[in-house]
Structures are given as C-alpha cells and as structure tokens.
Design a protein around this nucleic acid. Sequence first.
DNA 1: CGGCTGATCGTG
DNA 2: ACGATCAGCCGA
Length: 199
Amino acid sequence: MKRLDKDFYRQDALILAKALLGKVLVHETAEGTVKGIIVETEAYMGAMDAGSHAYQNRKTPRTKTMYEAGGISYVYLIYGMYCCMNVVAFEEGEAQAVLLRALEPIEGIDLMKKRRNLEKAKNLCNGPGKLCMAMDITKSENAVDLVTSSLYIEDAISIQKKNIIADRRVNIDYAGEARDYPWRFFIKDNPYISVKKQT
DNA sequence: CGGCTGATCGTG
DNA sequence: ACGATCAGCCGA
C-alpha cells in the first residue's frame, strides 16, 4: 500500500479527522514493524479552539510543530508519563491537528503485546497513550515528516459517512463551550475504540 | 460494571 | 499547579 501524500494532510482538520478513519498507521523500528487501522480521531482547530494547545494562537516550544504545514507528527508528553500523537493538518500557520485516539492492531501484534505487557488485542491501542506505547511513538517522533520517515500512514479504505459517529471530545472539561463540540470521530460498531459514549 | 485515585514531569 | 491518560482498586 502507498503512503498518504502531502496533499492529503493539507486539508481542514475536521475533514482530515474523518478521512483518516480506516487508514493504516505504520511504524518501522529496529524491533519490527507494527501497523494498526485508525478507528478513532479527534480534531483540534487551533486558535479558535479552547481545547487546543494552540488556543488563541499560543506559540511555545511545544506547540511550534502544530504551526508547520500539514503532514508531520505532533507528539507531546501528557500527565508526566504518557505520549499522545497528532497528525498536523492544513497549511503552515494554522495549528490544526488530529489526535489519534485508537487503532485496530493488524501487524506486529506480538511486539505490541510485549511493549504493552498485555495479552488482550482489544486493549493494546484503545487510547491515545496506549497506542503510542504499542507503536513505540515517543517525543523523539515529534515533528517527523510522515511522507518520508519510518513513521507514516498508508492509504487504505475510506469509511462511509453513515458509518462515522461524531461525539464530544474526551477530557477537555476546562474548554468552555468547545467542550461540547462534536469533534471526536470513530467507526461505528468498531470494538477497538477507546470510549463507547460520552454525554 | 462504574467511579475514584495515584503515578509522574514538562510546560507555562 | 496541572494535564488531549492509564491501571489498579474498590464497592455493588
């Protein structure tokens, strides 16, 4: 399968978040290659989004990568011990990104189990921190180019609109009315998503 | 099953 | 201080 190209990433994060569902995240490492189908995402819309690290155009060393042109990763440390991976969207200067929240593991599952110290396939990648552990995505994968590096996304199926559920994003209670925006997307009836229902 | 909590540290 | 989280523990 072919890698997604630059043009695919340079669209609005709300479009990209839905378009990424069904595509395959790949990380080639010395230990082996792991792959998972993207089944759950969240869009973060930059300056106008109170849930985003880039709210009100906040520019810091950490958020710098989000302002780059679409097609690179934005990986950051959360709660002092976990990593989350985003795909930077749209054009340079906009700080839009798509958080990858859950994968359906399809290759390198034994390696994922080893990294997660866990047997159950359903729980290997059903959360943003979990999928980073299983895929060995750390801060050294921050700002890497998804078109040229060993961390990338393969083209695959597109999910039909009727099979995409939109819901509130997870754990952004501080974000005022943005807390309720339906900017979390997941594949209907897929058993590998992180949270079944909000509200 | 659902709710609560401690872990742990870079960021601002 | 606190968080775009997780695992383990508790009680039902």
